[in-house]
């Protein structure tokens, strides 16, 4: 028996919007720790890792570890039928081939049940080693989204270079080049607007903008985004979900031949 009740249903809607363009089908894993997912995009260039900790739910019942295969587009469609302020409950009986999404409006006078078929998905869990990253940038999530969107109108790839002074995003295309530098900020009064750089070593890596633009669908989940890079690892783009966990995207760099 599985029963997860989330007071902020809008959060689950945002989570699905943040994953559905990157991954078609995925297994959600439910354990006493929380509700999680790890999945790669079809070309195995990017990986998304989601964790919604059990403590973040108003009620969390998961009698045994279960893995539920879902089509993320279909799940997003069903969740779009929930109001942003609705309470969302996920329910599944042991051995059932479907999951029920229950939506309750804030005044509790409208209750909706949506039942979705589960799928059998061959999951490939990858071991993600704990790593010390050479450079970590924390910046406003909306600013990062804006930069990725703007640069993708000029080129297909972005060179991200981190130094002690700031982070530089560069691209080039048929029409010309673009270069955006975000300098580290020193203000303390508005931490959500700060650009913070923790650098052990300067890093310069090239990534496909198409994927970064897909990751920025998670922007409504967090005010800040953390970008971690090492020269020999996929980059990690993390959006922390307050009180619940995180959504992390891993992206393999472009490699010089």
């Amino acid at each position: 028996m599985l029963e997860l009740r989330l007071l902020q249903g809008g959060l689950l809607k945002k989570v699905l919007e943040a994953m559905k363009d990157l991954v078609n089908d995925a297994n959600f894993d439910c354990s006493p720790t929380g509700f999680s997912l790890q999945a790669m995009d079809s070309s195995h260039v990017a990986l998304v890792s989601l964790l919604l900790r059990s403590e973040g739910f108003e009620h969390y019942r998961c009698d045994r570890n279960v893995s539920m295969g879902m089509n993320l587009n279909n799940m997003a469609k069903m969740l779009r039928c929930a109001g942003n302020d609705d309470i969302v409950t996920l329910k599944a009986d042991d051995g059932s081939d479907c999951i029920t999404f229950m939506f309750e409006n804030p005044s509790q006078d409208k209750i909706a049940d949506f039942e979705m078929k589960l799928m059998d998905i061959d999951s490939e869990h990858l071991g993600i080693p704990d790593a010390e990253y050479q450079s970590i940038v924390r910046m406003p999530a909306a600013e990062f989204a804006r930069i990725c969107r703007d640069l993708s109108t000029i080129g297909d790839t972005v060179l991200i270079s981190v130094s002690k002074e700031g982070v530089q995003f560069s691209t080039r295309g048929d029409m010309g080049t673009a270069n955006i530098v975000c300098r580290r900020t020193t203000t303390v009064d508005k931490p959500e607007e700060d650009v913070i750089i923790e650098m052990e070593e300067p890093v310069s890596l090239t990534f496909a903008l198409r994927y970064l633009n897909s990751f920025t669908k998670a922007t409504p989940l967090a005010t800040q985004v953390t970008i971690s890079m090492s020269s020999d690892l996929p980059m990690v783009i993390e959006y922390r979900i307050e009180g619940m966990g995180y959504i992390r995207y891993y992206l393999a760099p472009k490699i010089d031949e």
Binding site: V45, L126, G127, P129, P234, D256
Partner: peptide, 14 residues
Amino acid sequence: GPKQGNILSFFKKI
């Protein structure tokens, strides 16, 4: 141009 890397060459299946 540079070649797109693959996640599976960095993270191993478990």
